[in-house]
């Protein structure tokens, strides 16, 4: 039994590595065979995948249904706007991603810690409401404090980063180079998050999702773990927000608005929560569908709604969850 399980685990692991290397190769080769527009779609999909994966940590793995995740997404985008843009508002600290990225991580980390420590005290629907409230608060600040945030106009002129080590410099200005940067961050994120959810810490989070009271009586400081999960997820969301702002050269309060959280939530639910791959599929669908269908019908949102209702009613584990269920059934 022992040995068998061990070999199964090993098998899964090697499968994962193969899958990962195949997808990395595809991602690296893709630009050579696709046009500029496809690349821009890929960049968006990858950025929103990172965003959706970060929410999956919270919803899928820790069981905290946040509707305020756009707060960190938006925060990341605004922080990079302050750090490095041609706008008069900017402080112009540096264009070097080795400097800006840690600042974004630190700032979104602190913010998500502060919000997290308060929000995780609420459960279920109340957690949802409290995260929503925090996000709407930031949204309202972003609109009203226009001398700092640019108000509803947003902030333009956000620069794409470069990477400077000594005299050696890489520019991510062109779309293709920015694409490679996003691909790199995407894979680093997926590897890190995969490591996290499969570690003892990940087990702890899943234990909390499954049965919080039991975790307490086993001696787990549940609030501490929830906060940690909230911070990890907030930071990753912040990074994705930063990337989107750099890609668009722009950020606006729309990035903090609750519909952005809603979008991520749909990506997670649609793709399948607690899978990491699910949110990526969800993000792909959500970003591609309007693009494919809205030229044909302006009612793509209604179709999306129908799909979502179907998923929630008949495939509660989302696309990935349902497929893996079918596969495992066939194996039996």
């Amino acid at each position: 039994m022992n040995l068998k399980q061990h070999s199964i685990e090993k098998n899964i692991l090697s499968n994962k590595i193969i899958l990962l290397s195949i997808s990395i190769t595809i991602m690296l080769v893709l630009p050579t065979v696709s046009n500029n527009y496809i690349i821009s779609l890929l960049i968006e999909i990858l950025i929103f995948s990172i965003f959706a994966m970060s929410l999956d940590i919270l919803i899928g793995y820790t069981g905290l249904p946040s509707l305020g995740h756009s707060a960190f997404f938006g925060l990341g985008s605004y922080i990079i706007a302050f750090l490095n843009s041609t706008n008069a508002i900017a402080l112009n600290v540096s264009q070097n991603i080795l400097i800006t990225l840690p600042i974004v991580i630190l700032a979104t980390g602190i913010m998500s810690f502060v919000i997290g420590i308060i929000a995780i005290r609420a459960k279920g629907i109340y957690f949802l409401m409290i995260t929503l409230a925090f996000a709407q608060m930031l949204y309202s600040i972003s609109i009203r404090w226009s001398s700092v945030t640019g108000g509803s106009d947003g902030i333009t002129g956000i620069l794409r980063p470069n990477l400077v080590i000594g005299s050696w410099m890489l520019q991510f200005d062109s779309r293709i180079s920015f694409y490679y940067l996003v691909v790199a961050i995407f894979f680093i994120t997926i590897i890190l998050l995969n490591q996290i959810v499969n570690s003892p810490f990940g087990n702890t989070l899943q234990g909390i999702k499954s049965n919080q009271q039991r975790m307490l009586s086993l001696g787990y400081n549940v609030n501490w773990y929830k906060t940690a999960s909230f911070v990890i997820s907030g930071v990753v969301a912040g990074i994705s927000g930063m990337l989107l702002a750099q890609f668009y050269w722009f950020t606006s309060p729309e990035n903090i608005y609750w519909t952005m959280s809603g979008q991520a939530l749909i990506m997670v639910v649609l793709g399948g929560n607690a899978t990491l791959i699910g949110p990526i599929i969800g993000a792909t669908l959500m970003r591609l569908l309007p693009n494919v269908t809205s030229s044909i019908t302006i009612y793509w949102q209604s179709y999306m709604g129908l799909i979502l209702i179907a998923v929630v009613l008949y495939a509660r584990n989302g696309i990935v969850g349902t497929i893996s269920k079918i596969i495992s059934k066939n194996h039996e």
Binding site: Y37, E44, Y248, S252, E254, N255, N291, S295
Partner: peptide, 21 residues
Amino acid sequence: AEDTEMKPDVAQQKARKLIEQ
């Protein structure tokens, strides 16, 4: 014609589609 829904991120995507695709 493309629908921008009044969302900057949707508009970005649509603009790219129009110009590049």
